[in-house]
Design a protein around this nucleic acid. Structure first.
Length: 260
DNA sequence: ATGCCTTTCCCAGAAAGA
């Protein structure tokens, strides 16, 4: 079984690349982030011919997450219990959706960016991660294979950033953000390390300044698996090919192969 | 110099991304 996560940076703008990638990589389950369309505006008709059912949680211009599955799609849960919201609890953003796909359960996440350390968005990011820990606790400690995967907007270690000096006093690398991930793992989750194919295991490269070709990347798209899933992993890899060519997302997919 | 690119809103330029 193959599961994957990919921040597509607009599912409509990425549709040709997404369909081609689904056809080629043939994942059984895919978590998407930054769909940037309303819940009922997901291009379902474009992926059903490939065998996928869709659970989408969108809001329009920003954010938006989905689970695509060709092995069943049940018990869909949109949103996050205890979501702090931004800028307030009355304004909830579409940043997570969970579903059971055959033998596994997955949760697609698009963690808030944080913007800058003195921005209210940064405090929101930390509170959102704390709420996520509570939301995944039962699945993480269960016997069914489970993973929370997506764009965490945190580089877990300095090895996950091309130049840590550039990120001094920036979001994505602070002790508080990394601690929030550690607390999340304490729920019973393991960060699946991507196999090193060529160079560092980055999953994101800024569109600007030729970052991809200069190797200026970060590993911020993560798969956090519980024990039942981690023990079944046969391979974890980053599909750098998807970041090449015409009209790519700025993120590459992370793919996990399972022997269940 | 605080952009360099891409996407959305929708046709002008702002906001956001990380």
């Amino acid at each position: 079984m193959r599961v994957a996560t990919w921040n597509v940076n607009s599912v409509l703008a990425r549709l040709p690349r997404l369909v081609a990638w689904l056809d080629e990589a043939a994942p059984d389950v895919v978590c998407l982030q930054e769909t940037k369309v309303a819940t009922d505006a997901f291009p379902v008709d474009e992926v059903t011919p490939l065998g996928y059912s869709v659970a989408h949680h969108g809001e329009g211009r920003w954010n938006g997450v989905a689970v695509l599955s060709r092995v069943g799609l049940e018990d869909v849960v949109r949103g996050l219990p205890g979501d702090p919201g931004f800028p307030d609890a009355q304004t909830l953003e579409a940043r997570t959706v969970a579903a059971t796909c055959g033998p596994v359960r997955v949760r697609s996440v698009y963690v808030p960016n944080g913007r800058t350390l003195d921005d209210p968005h940064y405090a929101y990011k930390l509170r959102w991660l704390a709420a996520l820990r509570e939301a995944v606790a039962a699945d993480a400690s269960g016997s069914r294979p489970f993973a929370v995967m997506g764009d965490f907007n945190v580089a877990p270690t300095d090895e996950d950033v091309w130049d840590p000096a550039v990120f001094v006093d920036s979001t994505h690398v602070t002790p508080a953000e990394r601690s929030a991930l550690a607390v999340l793992r304490e729920a019973g989750l393991t960060d699946l390390p991507p196999r090193i194919a060529k160079g560092p295991p980055y999953t994101y490269w800024d569109y600007r300044a030729g970052s991809f070709h200069k190797g200026m990347g970060m590993r911020i798209d993560l798969v956090y698996a519980n024990a039942a899933m981690a023990s079944a992993v046969s391979d974890t890899w980053i599909d750098r090919e998807a970041r090449k060519g015409t009209g790519p997302s700025d993120h590459a997919p992370v793919v996990v192969d399972l022997d269940l």
